[in-house]
Structure formats: structure tokens, C-alpha cells
Design a protein around this nucleic acid. Structure first.
Length: 290
DNA sequence: CAGAATCACTAGTACTCTTC
DNA sequence: GAAGAGTACTAGTGATTCTG
């Protein structure tokens, strides 16, 4: 679509601009239904104009937000505009989540509460579900239960978008919350200069990405001690993975659940003293909505 | 429940690309 | 370059959904 035409082409249809009212005789009083009938095309026309006007504004906003030259995207279609907007908003949501976590550690408590609620729902659903393998059910519930009992600790500093290095100047302090395992909160600090490489803090390993996203590792007792704690992590596909990491894999949400899928990285937690050694023993694709 | 708002479909134009 | 296919868009309108 030639977007620079203002999205509104002049009378493409032969009947455009000649609404039903044109055939109406003005001297004859119109009934309500007639009036409605005659104004319908006009109302619809205005409605479409509103849609196009907003789409035009959206196009300018999204191109500006993405720092793209609008003159080089004159061919942008409506579907493209909507797709780019969806993508951009998803990125903003991720950034907001990152900011919320760094500003308010209690968010992790809320995360756990949400996790607990989801787990309860899964339990309830599985109890009513026939045809689900008992072993799979037990493993799933056991895994979720084990996850819930863990310290969900994370500390990260998402790198800024290109050309926006400002907030990188501030070191990030994250106080880990008390947990059911009685672990002592561990204050962590990540300097901006450290943000682009995997780090190990208090037993948790952090991998920031260059695009503002991140992945992290949490110890998980659901697996035998001998095999080392392994848990799923999520990250964007272009997260730079160090040599100590096993490659990620893409999984997609189940039918009926919105989402574009996630890349899950399976890896073993590396103690600070062993950071950099080969890890990652086991991978298992599990889709999660968070 | 009537009227308004929105959706979904059809028919038409404009434009691009490919083929001959 | 002409013809045709494909795509993107618009307008009009009946059908459907929402709302006061």
C-alpha cells in the first residue's frame, strides 16, 4: 500500500461519494429508518477514516520509536504497522518487567504467588483430566512443587537500547527476598561494565543480552544432586550464550494460549568458583507463559 | 428492544510484478 | 510494452453485537 497517500484513496468505487441519501428527495420527510439507512454509509466512512487516521499516527509513532526513517518505509502496510507495534509493545513490556524487578524486589514475591496460583490450577486441571499418563502427571506436579519451593532470585541489568546508554550508568542493587527455604537474602550488585557477560551471584547465574533481554539460572533440587541442579530458563533467541551454555530451543505455547513462544535454555548452575566450566546436562522443553 | 456501533463480505480501483 | 495475476486498498451494505 502506498502509505504516503494518506491511506485514503480518492473514490475508488464508482458509487463512492454517492451515498444512498443522494437518491432521496429532499422535500419528502424521511422516517427514522430511512435516515438511519442514508447515514449508514457516512458513519461507516467516518469510522474507516478514524481507523486510517489512527493507523497513520501509529505508523509515525512506531517508526519514530524504532528510530527508522519514515521515508524509507513509505510502503509500510497496515498489517506491517500492526505487527511492528505488537513487537514493540512486547519489548516495552519486557523492559518494564526488568525495571520493576530491579526497583522492587517484592515483585518476585508476587511472581511466586502467581506461580503458586498457576500450579494450583494445573493440579486442579490434571485431577480432572483423563488420559494423562500418571507418571507424567506426577513428574509435572513434582517439578512444579519443587520449583515453587525455591528461591526465585535474580539480578540483572538489561543493556539499554541502541543509543540510550543513560541508565547503564547506575549500578543495580537487588535484595533477594526471604524464602521458604530460609535462605538469607543476598545483596547483589551489578556494574554496567559487567552487564554484558554471564555472572554468578550468590549461586545464581545471570546472562544479560545485548537487546535488553536476559536469562538467568536458578538452582533446582527437583533433579538428583549428582546431575546438578538444572532448570529451564527463558530468553530471546539472540541472547548471546557463553561457551558454558547449552544452546536454547524454541517452544510454542499450547493451542488456545496467546504468545509467540519462548526460547528455553537448559543449563546447570555453575558455582562461582567453577564459572566457565562446561555445563548443561539435560534439556526439556516446557512452555511457560512468563 | 430500538438504535448505534462494529464486523464481514462484495465489488471496484490502483499498483506491482511476472511472463511473453 | 501489453496482458494478466496478485495484492492492497476503499466504499457500500447486510448482519451481528453492544448499549442505554
Amino acid at each position: 500500500m502506498p502509505a504516503d497517500t494518506g491511506m485514503e484513496k480518492p473514490t475508488a468505487s464508482p458509487i463512492a461519494g454517492a451515498p444512498a441519501s443522494a437518491s432521496h428527495t429532499p422535500d419528502k420527510p424521511r422516517s427514522a429508518s430511512e435516515h438511519r439507512k442514508s447515514s449508514k454509509p457516512i458513519m461507516e466512512k467516518r469510522r474507516r477514516a478514524r481507523i486510517n487516521e489512527s493507523l497513520g499516527q501509529l505508523k509515525m509513532l512506531i517508526l519514530d520509536a524504532l528510530k527508522k526513517d519514515s521515508s524509507r518505509h513509505s510502503k509500510l502496510e497496515k498489517a506491517d504497522i500492526l505487527e511492528m507495534t505488537v513487537k514493540h509493545l512486547r519489548n516495552l513490556q519486557r523492559a518494564q518487567m526488568a525495571a520493576a524487578l530491579s526497583a522492587d524486589p517484592s515483585v518476585l514475591g508476587k511472581y511466586r504467588a502467581g506461580f503458586n496460583e498457576c500450579m494450583n490450577e494445573v493440579t486442579r486441571f490434571l485431577s480432572t483430566c483423563e488420559g494423562v499418563n500418571a507418571d507424567v502427571r506426577a513428574r509435572l506436579l513434582g517439578h512444579l512443587s519443587a520449583c515453587l519451593g525455591q528461591i526465585v532470585a535474580m539480578n540483572y541489568l538489561p543493556p539499554p537500547p541502541a543509543g540510550q546508554p543513560a541508565h547503564l550508568a547506575q549500578p543495580l542493587h537487588v535484595q533477594l527476598p526471604p524464602t521458604t527455604t530460609g535462605a538469607v537474602p543476598v545483596p547483589c550488585k551489578l556494574e554496567p561494565t559487567e552487564a554484558l557477560s554471564p555472572k554468578v551471584y550468590g549461586g545464581f547465574q545471570l546472562v544479560p543480552a545485548t537487546d535488553g533481554q536476559f536469562a538467568f539460572l536458578i538452582p533446582n533440587p527437583a533433579f538428583p544432586p549428582g546431575s546438578g541442579p538444572v532448570i529451564p530458563l527463558y530468553a530471546n533467541a539472540n541472547v548471546p550464550v557463553s561457551t558454558a551454555w547449552r544452546s536454547s530451543e524454541r517452544v510454542h505455547p499450547p493451542a488456545g494460549i496467546p504468545g509467540a513462544g519462548l526460547d528455553i535454555i537448559w543449563a546447570r548452575v555453575v558455582p562461582a568458583s567453577q564459572a566457565g566450566s562446561p555445563i548443561a546436562e539435560r534439556r526439556e522443553a516446557v512452555w511457560r507463559p512468563w
